[in-house]
Amino acid sequence: MPPEKDWRAPPDEAGDEALQYCDIAIGYVSRNSRYHLDYRRALDRVRRGVISADAATAGLVQRWGVSYHAAPTSAFDRKLAVARPDLAPDSIILAPCLDGIGAAPRLDMAMLGAVRARMKIGDFLHFILADTEGDEHVWVAGALDVPMAMMVPVGINPLARLAAAERLCRRLSGMASGPPALRPPPFRREHLLTLLQVLDGQRAGATQRELAASLIHRRVRRYTTAEWVESPERKRIRRWLKEAVELRDGGYIRLLRGD
Results as ranks from 00 to 15, higher is better:
Arg41Thr: 14
Ala75Tyr: 10
Arg219Thr: 02
Leu19His: 05
Arg171Ile: 01
Gly155Ile: 08
Ala164Gly: 10
Cys169Gly: 01
Thr194Met: 12
Ala141Gly: 00
Thr225Ala: 15
Gly100Gln: 07
Ala95Thr: 00
Pro10Phe: 00
Asp131Arg: 09
Pro179Glu: 14
Pro184Asn: 04
Met1Glu: 02
Lys235His: 05
Val154Trp: 00
Thr57Phe: 10
Ser177Ile: 07
Leu60Glu: 03
Asn157Trp: 10
Ile156Arg: 11
Leu107Glu: 02
Ala181Trp: 10
Ala18Gln: 14
Pro185Cys: 14
Ile156Gly: 04
Thr225Asp: 15
Arg8Trp: 00
Ile101Ala: 07
Leu144Lys: 07
Leu182Ile: 15
Asn32Ala: 15
Arg254Tyr: 04
Arg239Cys: 10
Asp99Pro: 13
Asp54Ser: 13
Asp131Pro: 14
Val61Gln: 03
Asp131Gly: 14
Ala25Thr: 13
Leu112Trp: 01
Ala212Ser: 06
Leu211Met: 05
Ile156Lys: 06
Ala206Met: 02
Val61Pro: 02
Leu195Trp: 05
Ile93Cys: 02
Leu80Lys: 06
Pro153Tyr: 01
Leu94Tyr: 06
Glu13Gly: 13
Leu60Cys: 11
Gly205Trp: 07
Pro105Lys: 03
Val140Asp: 01
Asp200Asn: 06
Leu196Thr: 11
Arg188Asn: 05
Ala42Cys: 15
Asp108His: 01
Ile253Val: 13
Glu166Trp: 00
Gly258Phe: 12
Gly134Gln: 12
His126Leu: 11
Cys22Glu: 09
Arg45Gln: 15
Asp54Leu: 12
Ala56Pro: 10
Glu190Leu: 03
Arg47Glu: 05
Gly102Tyr: 09
Ala149Tyr: 00
Met175Cys: 09
Leu94Arg: 03
Tyr21Asp: 08
Pro184His: 10
Asp259Gly: 07
Asp145Trp: 09
Arg239Gln: 03
His69Met: 10
Arg218Ala: 07
Tyr252Gln: 10
Ser214Arg: 03
Leu255Gly: 07
Ala9Phe: 07
Leu159Ile: 09
Gln208Ile: 05
Asp77Met: 15
Arg183Glu: 12
Gly15Ile: 05
Pro153Arg: 08
Val140Cys: 00
Leu255Phe: 08
Ala163Asp: 12
His191Asp: 08
Ala55Tyr: 12
Glu133Tyr: 14
Met109Val: 02
Arg41Ser: 13
Thr207Leu: 08
Val198Cys: 05
Leu193Pro: 12
Met111Cys: 01
Ala160Arg: 11
Tyr68Gln: 08
Glu190Tyr: 12
Arg257Tyr: 06
Ala9Gly: 02
Leu195His: 04
Asp99Leu: 09
Val61Ala: 03
Tyr68Leu: 15
Lys5Thr: 00
Lys79Leu: 14
Gly250Met: 11
Ala81Thr: 14
Pro185Glu: 15
Ser214Asn: 01
Arg218Gln: 04
Pro153Cys: 11
Pro11Glu: 03
Pro232Arg: 11
Leu192Lys: 09
Val140Ser: 01
Glu13His: 15
Val220Thr: 03
Arg78Met: 14
Ile121Ala: 02
Ala163Ile: 13
Asp249Phe: 08
Leu195Met: 12
Ala88Asn: 14
Gly155Arg: 10
Glu17Val: 09
Gly174Tyr: 06
Arg248Leu: 11
Val229Ser: 11
Ala88His: 15
Gly178Ala: 12
Arg8Asp: 01
Val154Lys: 01
Leu129His: 06
Val46Ser: 06
Glu233Met: 13
Cys97Arg: 10
Val46Cys: 05
Ser177Trp: 05
Thr57Gln: 04
Tyr39Trp: 13
Leu129Lys: 11
Glu4Tyr: 00
Asp44Asn: 09
Leu255Thr: 09
Arg40Asn: 04
